[in-house]
């Protein structure tokens, strides 16, 4: 569905992503984990069109979308939920949802998606007329995911959905993400916690210093594998002993 091939991205002269590749198949929930500054968010921003890679290719359903503008990419079927939620705080919850559907022409389907989104996130139904900015963090996170679904995307990219949320809310968010996957959505989720990745993903990519250091089906990976790849220990016996919790 979505293929990223050896992309390189820099901020000015500073490389953030150095030859990173991954792919997501239809109906998969893929998690990208890695420490702060590893290049995860940069990769997401690049796929969504906010940044242009200096090298490499991004394909959606076989079509090259590298370097297209964000709105074009959104219209081609990638919905990006950036880190930090970004609800439109002056717009009501209902308006936030409708913005997601403004580019669509299939009015009837929009209506049914709207109802479906509210069924997924019942809390939003109670808050429809409230300005987005007045919602709690967890409600905002639900709103932005619901909003992303309103675009009827082929792939949803979610950047650090757990950021700044209480663990119980994080569980709720992941329950929803898994449910979406079960109903056929394709998702890429960026996460810092290896445990949450193992728990929720079908497949995992570990990213460090702008490159993939480990990939695999989560069923076949262990905590230890992930931590080693995550922290970049070269000498496993020594390094782990010094740092392992």
């Amino acid at each position: 569905m979505l293929e990223v091939e050896t992309i390189e991205v820099s901020y000015g002269r500073i490389p953030a992503v150095r030859g990173l590749s991954f792919r997501v198949d239809k109906g998969e929930l893929v998690t990208i984990v890695g420490p702060n500054g590893a290049g995860k968010s940069t990769t997401m921003m690049t796929i969504a069109g906010a940044l242009t890679p200096t090298r490499g290719l991004i394909r959606l359903g076989g079509v090259d979308i590298t370097g297209k503008r964000p709105e074009e990419i959104a219209r081609l079927g990638i919905s990006f939920v950036p880190e930090g939620r970004h609800v439109f705080s002056q717009l009501t919850v209902g308006e936030n949802l409708l913005i997601g559907a403004d580019m669509r022409r299939d009015r009837a389907a929009v209506r049914s998606d709207y109802d479906r989104a509210l069924a997924y996130f019942p809390i939003l139904k109670e808050r429809l007329e409230m300005p987005g900015g007045k919602l709690s963090g967890g409600e905002q996170q639900q709103l932005v995911i619901a909003r992303a679904l309103m675009t009827r995307p082929k792939v949803v990219l979610v950047d650090e959905p757990s950021l700044g949320l209480a663990p119980i809310i994080v569980d709720l968010v992941y329950d929803i993400l898994r449910k979406l996957r079960d109903e056929g959505s394709t998702l890429v989720v960026v996460e810092q916690s290896t445990h949450r990745a193992l728990e929720n993903a079908d497949r995992i990519y570990v990213v460090r210093n702008g490159q993939v250091t480990l990939e695999g089906a989560s069923a076949k990976l262990t905590d230890k594998d992930l931590e080693n790849a995550y922290f970049g220990f070269e000498d496993k016996t020594d390094g782990v002993a010094a740092v392992h919790f």
Binding site: R69, P70, E71, A74, F88, M103, R147
Partner: peptide, 24 residues
């Protein structure tokens, strides 16, 4: 109006609006 809604969204966070397909 839809365009008005998009304008309000864009004035708050233009990039986020574009991620949702709003044409700059």
């Amino acid at each position: 109006s839809a365009i008005g809604r998009q304008m309000r969204a864009a004035s708050e966070n233009f990039m986020m609006a574009r991620f949702l397909g709003v044409r700059a």
